[in-house]
Design a protein around this nucleic acid. Structure first.
Lengths: 110, 110
DNA sequence: ACAATGTTTCTATATTTATGGAAATATAGA
DNA sequence: TCTATATTTCCATAAATATAGAAACATTGT
């Protein structure tokens, strides 16, 4: 993971509408949801939604697949996990008990 | 955790200079680093650095403490863990094996 | 009190990002 | 082919963010 990709991914969820979309998809699972349903659920106008979905796709945090007239969007868990790992990488220089996936839990400073 | 805080926290690291600063501090540990050393390490002008440190502080992702003339900045692991948990919250609607801290690892769609 | 060092605030400018209506494109059913 | 539905692209406008020099402020040692 390089820093540019990480910034791109973080930027894509550092925005209220997009974070809502992303979390909705994370919770929805692999099946995903058609764009229209996302817009209806979150009350986002179609063109605005499309703009945000493109941002998330471009960052690689969501996937899409076409099913007849619908385009289903779903979270990309692999990218997401890569991002989380990047953020906690080398946590505390390994001094404390800082597992990668369980993030950081260093003891208080003496 | 509310969405506004999450967006604030994400925005604060969704920028190359700030992500570098944050990761440096995550890796440095609780001891932290004085502003000047951060700027020297990452080659960021003092006023620019100060602006970014303020953003990170405001979001709650870093702490600071004064030691004589130096101001030591360090990562706030608690805030960080809260953010990671928020992102993976309710992952996959619980259908698959998606532990909170170990993020999401759903099986392929059939 | 003065000088040196570390950090922040002020300021202007440049750049990037978000919004949503209208028009365009794509798919499918009658 | 015509029509309805789903989604995207185009566009203009509004708003937020990043940059860094200069000046100001704070702390410590002499």
């Amino acid at each position: 993971m390089d820093i540019k990709s990480a910034v791109l991914q973080l930027s894509s969820i550092a925005q209220e509408a997009r974070l809502e979309i992303f979390r909705l998809l994370v919770q929805t699972g692999l099946e995903g949801m058609p764009a229209g349903s996302i817009g209806e659920t979150l009350e986002i106008p179609a063109s605005t939604l499309s703009f945000h979905l493109k941002e998330l796709s471009h960052a690689g945090l969501i996937n899409s697949r076409q099913v007849s007239r619908f385009i289903y969007y779903s979270a990309n868990y692999e990218t997401m996990n890569g991002l989380l790992a990047y953020l906690t990488e080398n946590c505390c220089a390994g001094v404390n008990d800082c597992g990668l996936s369980s993030a950081c839990n260093p003891k208080e400073r003496k």
